[in-house]
Design a protein around this nucleic acid. Structure first.
Lengths: 332, 332
DNA sequence: GAACTTAACGAAAGCGCTTGCAGTGTCTTA
DNA sequence: TAAGACACTGCAAGCGCTTTCGTTAAGTTC
């Protein structure tokens, strides 16, 4: 391994000067800079990131915890965050929590032991208190999709209530009256907020909330088919379903096809998230866009501003919007 | 920051003993171990990964370069690789090359400067020679989806030729004779191999290869619709299309719907990759499964065995298989 | 030309850890 | 009981870098 020592010897300056030339923290004579960079070039020198980090206690990297390294949600999130971080000449280290509290904790440990300068956290399992503790250790911490009052300007969420409202309103506007709603796990605040949005829209249109039109599903793939079947079996004149995410909508698609119900004609469906596949399934799914791109960008910008202690006004409640495609029948 | 020094003082042993207790490289008296771990617990000590890495020149982490942090291919790849790596108490650091040679090089640099113990590389832009050079620097390097003869037991590919053969054979077996093929970029070896598989199947069934049935598309989203339209416009009695990936198949779906051709009846389509959405589109797409899961697992196992210098017989040509769904009409 | 400022640099300490080496003390073995 | 073997431990060097501090040389001011 080529070290700074060899560079300094070849360039006939001290190690300190090489370091300074490299980092630009202090002034170095032009002639020496040239000598240094020539030597670096000639030797193919690459600074040892560990030694740098150890000596400076800065790691030039941002840690990110996501639920999973795969999937239509986390993918773009990581992608966009990395983009921004890279542009600032820093690096993003991503780990996944894989829906286990232990792994989430372990991942945060790992990232902190790597002395990340900042942290972007999308956690399912960690409690607010634990997040607060983490943010105390790593002040430049940004929390995604969770609102922790104590960390109010470090949280970036989307307005789930608005999203639920938009989806429902779209159905109502299209002339539907019996609008069902399949929620995610009601243990999750996202589900409850989206449901509240649904209720708000109903109220606005003067329609009574009817609990028999509600079913609790799951945001992941498990068991939604059965929920949809049972909902339809209730046979209470449903003409439209607001599925609280696109996964659930997918299950609804499958069940409708089982029952030979033509989506967009016999029944209408609205999803939530605007996952990549929502535009590939037929009929193309009308859904609420989850601004995951913006979230990635915002998270990265926010964490970088915290790291560099710059002023930055976070946009911490991102607005979803309706993507009107082909899965909703319009009566008017 | 709590350091090993403080732990050693509280436990009333030397730093060396703390280190040894922690790493188990050497024997430490039981009573001292207990004292050490009690002290660690009490102080909430976390070893500084940089100092560890610097001192030991081992980083306990594997670097991974992928094309993008998102998408149905790289997602599961990362996911499964991380799983395995974690189980060995190491960590995976993922960076993306984003289809730019510069970024790929930069990412590898970054990973190497982080002293990763091993490297898993899925590169689009780097030349074989460059890969060889990288593998020289980091001996525990595994190359994905590329066969570099000099690194033969560090390459993990799938058998694209077999895949192309299986797709075509399925169509032929189902009674189709005029089978078109839309390839990916022919600059990519994958495309050429899949095409060769197509030809092999034709030969086996005694059918003459007809260049007018071939069109060159792209593995990504760009411009495939137009290619499909032009192919159909040639009006040469095509009853089936082998699309060299699911993306292309998606474009074919769109064009067929434009032209009111019912897939699985008027025309048959086989894809390649078995992307997540292929089972959600209607009719469900018959496609060739790309064993991405196995690839992730195999890559991780391989790189770990290289890191620990253990014997491991790589399965470096993974077998794709046909997933028979609803997009192919069967004449028999 | 003395006194001061400033630019540029080198020496060296130190970041927190691992590890080779040299003990020390205990246990076997003949 | 001497001597070798062994288990355990501490000392201290050193990993490759950053950064403080002091020094030198050059420039500035009156």
């Amino acid at each position: 391994m080529i070290t700074i020592k060899e560079v300094s010897e070849l360039a006939q300056v001290s190690q300190a000067t090489v370091s300074r030339a490299l980092n630009g923290h202090s002034t170095v004579k032009e002639i020496n800079k040239i000598k240094v960079f020539e030597a670096i070039e000639k030797l193919g020198y690459k600074p040892n990131a560990f030694a740098q980090a150890l000596a400076s206690s800065r790691s030039n990297s941002i840690g990110m915890l996501v639920g999973s390294l795969e999937g239509p949600f986390y993918g773009p999130l990581m992608h966009n965050a990395e983009d921004i971080v890279r542009k600032k000449n820093m690096h993003l280290i991503v780990t996944s929590g894989q829906e286990s509290k232990e792994k989430e904790t372990d991942s945060i440990r790992f990232l902190q032991s790597k002395q990340v300068d900042g942290l972007i956290i999308h956690s399912d399992m960690l409690s607010d208190d634990e997040l607060i503790k983490i943010a105390k250790n790593t002040p430049a911490t940004v929390i995604l999709n969770r609102y922790v009052p104590e960390l109010s300007n470090q949280c970036i969420c989307i307005d789930n209530e608005l999203g639920g409202y938009l989806a429902t309103k779209h159905l109502l506007e299209s002339g539907h009256i019996k609008v069902a709603c399949i929620t995610g796990q009601l243990s999750k605040i996202d589900s409850r907020d989206r449901l509240q949005g649904y209720r708000n829209a109903l109220t606005e249109y003067g329609i009574q909330y009817d609990a028999s039109l509600i079913a609790e599903g799951r945001f992941d793939h498990d068991g939604n088919h059965e929920k949809v079947r049972r909902l339809l079996d209730r046979d209470n004149g449903i003409t439209a379903i607001f599925c609280q995410n696109d996964n659930i909508a997918l299950a609804a698609y499958d069940v409708c096809s089982e029952r030979e119900l033509t989506i967009g004609k016999d029944i209408s469906i609205v999803g939530f998230d605007n996952d990549t596949y929502s535009q590939h399934i037929r009929p193309r799914l009308t859904t609420v866009n989850f601004p995951v791109l913006e979230m990635g960008v915002e998270a990265a910008n926010c964490v970088l501003s915290l790291v560099h202690k710059e002023e930055y006004s976070v946009n911490n409640k991102l607005a979803p919007e309706l993507i009107d495609r082909d899965s909703v029948k319009k009566f008017n």
